[in-house]
Nucleic acid binder design. Structure first.
Length: 981
RNA sequence: GCCGAAGUGGCGGAACCGGCAGACGCGCUGGAUUCAAAAUCCAGUGUCAGCAAUGACGUGUGGGUUCGAGUCCCACCUUCGGCACCA
């Protein structure tokens, strides 16, 4: 009795070994194949090989791409489907700190586990392309790309046509092509080098960074959630430090605009656009004079007039001089409503503008702001705070004196770090003005009541009280005044981004070293001048280190590296010290999709011929948690490589699908009062409380709890058995006490909740095919879905039925063909079912509707299990349809059906419409749009025939009696509807 | 607060262009097989009324368009994801 459940382990091991031995999925990209119908590059977001092993979330996307690949091969496509490891990063290093195990050892071990697990699922990767981002032969080229970034400056006005034939403005160009101003050239080569360094896409910057003492590293803004580190939830401090940044903002426009042509979910595109946050407005200079503070905080009208007429001649300077405060605004139309200005506390002009009387208050406020973490700043932002500097500026449009404040609601890192405040028409300014009782002057009115300006009106409208501009609609006003300011040298059009430059250095060990040296002076101090490692000498390997304890300071780990790694003397005698920062984890994942196409190339990062024929990635599948960062960084690098002529496409990922998260099993949670955690119970009746009477709350430790709305008493959650609850109305209640409403929901899988499903366990119990099939059957790939072990049993049962449909279970020992499978012609009805299934499954796979494709196959099996004769001519195509989903059982059945080699390259079945036509069809009959009956008529029956049949039907006739048909709606082949009175 | 996605049986979900709501699976009920159980097979299963034929109601809520709305339009509610002083 060879039952499927008894055979599954043998079958899966057998076919995994077969695919390995025959290199079934190996693809040689250099080879051309005239018979192929094109290339298909399908990529999974490669995993970080954590110590916890594979999670059931991983195989979801991996199964989807595997189906697409297997389907593609059967349709004659040449398929590139690689897998590798995103292996640099914090966890391996944290483990090293704890145990002393070298991160390379931990990483290798974890990779081994992941690989074993992935192989046990039968994915059709070309494993010969495998690599990890930690391989020196890989990070050699990561460093090489960094050198490209270092060698590039962005020329925003450059108009050019790329290899894609499209014209665009703005290009990353070699630093050698950067025009050097004459006054810089005249200062000598060192000045030129510094000028170039100032314009590179990779540059150094001293800035307050997010220093996390617990992790011993500086974090990027994106790695901080609610003021705490994303990993571990540790507090973060602001500390000034020299950092490497990548000038991603230079590409802001192109990163936003070039999303349009991509086949990505609209939600991801809009998330990226929001993240980039492009805004258009104007920069305006407010005159403060040269000695504002010493002049008692005010500036003479005469000096202002002189400045203005000078500006009319010179125009608006590129960089503001110290006699002005430059602001950025998106609403230059509200210039007549300005009643104060605000500088960020860190703004360099604060020092100069602060009067003697205000100095103490300003200094103390600045100190507070500097030490505050972002969290504190957000917390305190619930009310606005700020201090008057004592200084004044002059409003360029009306010559008014405007008081200058500092406040931390203005950020130094956005725009110019200074704003003109218009409390009447900006919510934040209004809040601030209310706290400090500053004048609110309305200058915009709603279109429908244009007489008076309306304070608190934040939308577009019509200008009032705005001198010569009064009466203009907002948009016209903006355009006009921006032009006028430009003409008089007082302002200009400006664009800003919410996106900041990318903080690219980390102070950890387990990352790519920078291929850079700092020149040292005679005293051994850095001069600020840099040298690069020659390309031929890459990779710069990580030095061996004795211990991995963090330095305890923001100094990088590598500053403790051995001297022979740290120091060198250049041929010209200059002493050099290595850059000791390492690159962030994002670096390795920014370009791995390129290397997969040519992973062994020791001459180039990627062969241009292969790049041209195999890029871009046609389908990229991964979790939505990478919707912004990874995908934005990758696109940025790709565009730089494009500008520098190393790749021929502007975008790396043509099509993107985000798989939805898999949650744990649905849980029912009731709440009780008067019990402590884990203290139950003496058998006394529990004091159940309905969730309707509870409200969510967060305690001091940040843990979410439920409390009684009226009394504030904390309710203890109790997990309930399914049998203890029932549905009542819209909610679930206790069976015993139906007035007690309970929670019913699925939670994110987590160790602490204990609802994690281990794929190894599922494979062991049901087999890889069942796991794959279940994950695809759960629902749409993109949806968030709860796990259900019963559901896995369901698909395992289906595979058992497939097995019995084709295999003779009566036979004692041998896996033999079921005698019902015969070489006889299929009946018309059997052909109809088969071709209907082929049509539906094909369409569903093409549209990634895997759940419905599986439903169709289930219908096929339900149909054919009931038949005593199962013609081979319909059974074989079915096995092929099933094979991308459940490849092991399909290969086995294919063998039993008499084939000697893998079905991986068999032609995908095709259907013929002629088998799909039915002889009779059932037509629904409606009366006034309501279904009243059905009539069966020959296929292709015309309207009169169907109407006659409908009227002849007993129930319809009864309903029609005594009524008049006013109208008949007829949809051929679909339905007929009588409108009656 | 802003941006995005989604609300359909007891549960996961299906329904292509506005045309039979609930495919397929889970669960549940009854039956067959069995000494018994597992496994398997058969039948039923949106709610209410009815012995039944059948009827009424039914896709988050309220309105609208239409012969006909889960699907289109307007307003709102809830859940999830993202952003959050970006001037």
């Amino acid at each position: 009795m060879p039952r499927y459940d008894d055979e599954v382990k043998r079958i899966e091991a057998k076919w995994q070994a077969y695919w390995d031995q025959h290199q079934t999925f190996h693809v040689d990209l250099a080879q051309t194949d005239s018979a192929s119908t094109g290339k298909l590059y399908v990529l999974d977001m490669f995993p970080y090989p954590s110590g916890a092993g594979l999670h059931v979330g991983h195989p979801e996307g991996y199964t989807a791409t595997d189906i697409v690949c297997r389907f593609g091969r059967m349709r004659g496509k040449r398929v590139l489907h690689p897998m590798g490891w995103d292996a640099f990063g914090l966890p391996a290093e944290d483990y090293a700190i704890k145990t002393g195990t070298h991160p390379a050892v931990t990483t290798a071990k974890n990779i081994e586990t992941f690989k074993r697990q992935l192989k046990s699922l039968g994915f059709s990767y070309d494993w010969s392309r495998e690599f990890a981002t930690t391989d020196p032969e890989y990070y050699r080229w990561t460093q090489w790309i960094f050198l490209q970034l270092f060698d590039t400056w962005y020329d925003p006005g450059h108009v050019w046509t790329g290899p894609d034939g499209k014209s665009r403005t703005g290009k990353g160009r070699p630093i050698a092509e950067l025009p050097i101003p004459a006054d810089v050239t005249s200062q000598g080569t060192e000045a030129v080098r510094r000028y170039q360094d100032h314009h590179r896409l990779a540059y150094q910057h001293e800035a307050p960074v997010n220093w996390c003492p617990a992790l011993g590293t500086v974090l990027a803004n994106e790695e901080i959630v609610d003021g705490k580190s994303e990993r571990g939830g540790h507090p973060v401090e602001r500390v000034p430090l020299r950092q490497w940044l990548l000038r991603i903002t230079a590409y802001g426009d192109r990163l936003a605009a070039e999303l349009d042509d991509l086949n990505w979910p609209e939600s991801i595109k809009s998330m990226q656009k929001n993240w980039i946050g492009r805004s258009e407005g104007a920069e305006v200079d407010f005159f403060v004079g040269t000695s504002a503070a010493s002049a008692g905080g005010t500036t003479s009208p005469a000096a202002f007039e002189a400045w203005k007429s000078a500006r009319a001649k010179t125009g608006f300077p590129q960089d503001p001089a110290s006699d002005v405060i430059r602001v950025y605004t998106t609403r230059p139309d509200t210039l007549f409503g300005v009643t104060y200005m605000v500088l960020a506390p860190e703004h360099p002009a604060v020092e100069r503008l602060t009067t003697l009387e205000q100095r103490a208050a300003v200094d103390s406020y600045r100190q507070q702001a500097a030490t505050k973490s972002d969290l504190d700043r957000t917390d305190l932002a619930k009310g606005k705070s700020g201090v008057f500097t004592g200084g004044y500026a002059i409003n360029p449009v009306n010559g008014e004196q405007v008081p200058i404040w500092i406040a931390d609601y203005v950020l130094i890192s956005y725009g110019t770090g200074a704003i003109m405040a218009v409390p009447a028409h900006d919510e934040r300014d209004l809040e601030f003005a209310t706290v400090f009782q500053i004048e609110v002057r309305p200058v915009v009115a709603p279109k429908d009541q244009p007489q008076h300006g309306t304070p608190g009106f934040f939308e577009h409208g019509v200008a009032v009280n705005s001198g010569p501009y009064t009466g203009l609609p907002t948009l016209e006003f903006k355009a006009k005044i921006t032009g006028d300011l430009q003409a008089s040298g007082l302002g200009r059009k400006a664009v800003n981004y919410r996106l900041r430059d990318w903080l690219f250095s980390r102070q950890r060990y387990w990352g790519e070293p920078f291929p850079l040296w700092h020149e040292l002076d005679a005293a051994g101090q850095p001069t600020g001048l840099l040298r690069t490692d020659p390309e031929a000498s890459l990779p710069v390997r990580l030095p061996e280190m004795a211990n991995f304890k963090p330095t305890g300071t923001p100094d990088p780990m590598l500053s403790k590296a051995p001297d022979d790694w740290l120091y060198a003397t250049a041929p010209d005698g200059t002493r050099l010290k290595r850059e000791t920062n390492t690159m962030p984890q994002w670096a390795g994942s920014c370009w791995y999709y390129l290397r997969f196409a040519d992973p062994k190339n020791s001459q180039q990062f990627l062969d241009p011929a292969i790049e041209k024929s195999w890029l871009p990635v046609d389908l990229y599948v991964g979790g939505a948690e990478h919707a912004v960062l990874h995908l934005l960084y990758s696109r940025f690098w790709h565009k730089v490589l494009f500008d520098r002529g190393h790749v021929s496409t502007v975008e790396p990922f043509q099509r993107l699908i985000n798989q939805g998260m898999i949650l744990g099993e649905v849980e029912f949670t009731g709440y009780v009062l008067g019990e402590a955690q884990g203290a139950k119970t003496d058998g006394s009746p529990r004091r159940w409380i309905s969730v309707r009477d509870l409200t969510a709350s967060v305690d001091e430790e940040g843990t979410a709890t439920r409390i009684v709305e009226q009394t504030g008493e904390v309710a203890l959650p109790v997990t309930l058995d399914v049998d203890a609850v029932e549905k009542k109305g819209d909610s679930f209640v206790l069976k015993e006490q139906p007035q007690i409403v309970v929670d019913s929901r699925a939670y994110k899988m987590s160790k602490s909740r204990g609802n994690v499903i281990n794929p190894d366990v599922v494979v062991d119990q049901f087999g890889a095919d069942s796991l794959r099939l279940y994950e695809m059957f759960m629902g749409p790939l993109e949806a968030v879905k709860p796990w259900s072990m019963k559901g896995v049993e369901g698909v395992a049962r289906f595979l058992g039925r497939v097995w019995r449909m084709i295999i003779d279970e009566q036979h004692e020992t041998e896996v033999k063909l079921n005698p019902a499978v015969q070489d006889v012609p299929a009946t018309a009805e059997q052909l109809r079912v088969a071709h209907r299934t082929i049509k539906a499954v094909t369409r569903d796979v093409e549209s990634t509707g895997f759940n419905t494709a599986i439903s169709r196959m289930m219908e096929f099996v339900n149909e054919f299990l009931a038949q005593d004769v199962r013609p081979r001519a319909v059974i074989e195509p079915f096995v092929l349809l099933l094979s991308p989903f459940a490849p092991h059982i399909a290969e086995e059945l294919w063998g039993v059906l008499g084939h000697s080699k893998t079905l991986a390259y068999e032609s995908w079945p095709t259907y013929d419409e002629k088998y799909l036509v039915e002889t009779e069809v059932e037509i629904p009959v409606q009366l006034n749009g309501k279904l009243r009956g059905k009539v069966t008529v020959p296929a292709g029956a015309d309207q009169p025939a169907i109407e006659a049949a409908a009227k002849a039907d007993a129930t319809i006739a009864g309903q029609l009696a005594g009524k008049t048909i006013v109208k008949t709606v007829f949809v051929p082949g679909k339905m007929v509807n009588f409108v009656v009175k």
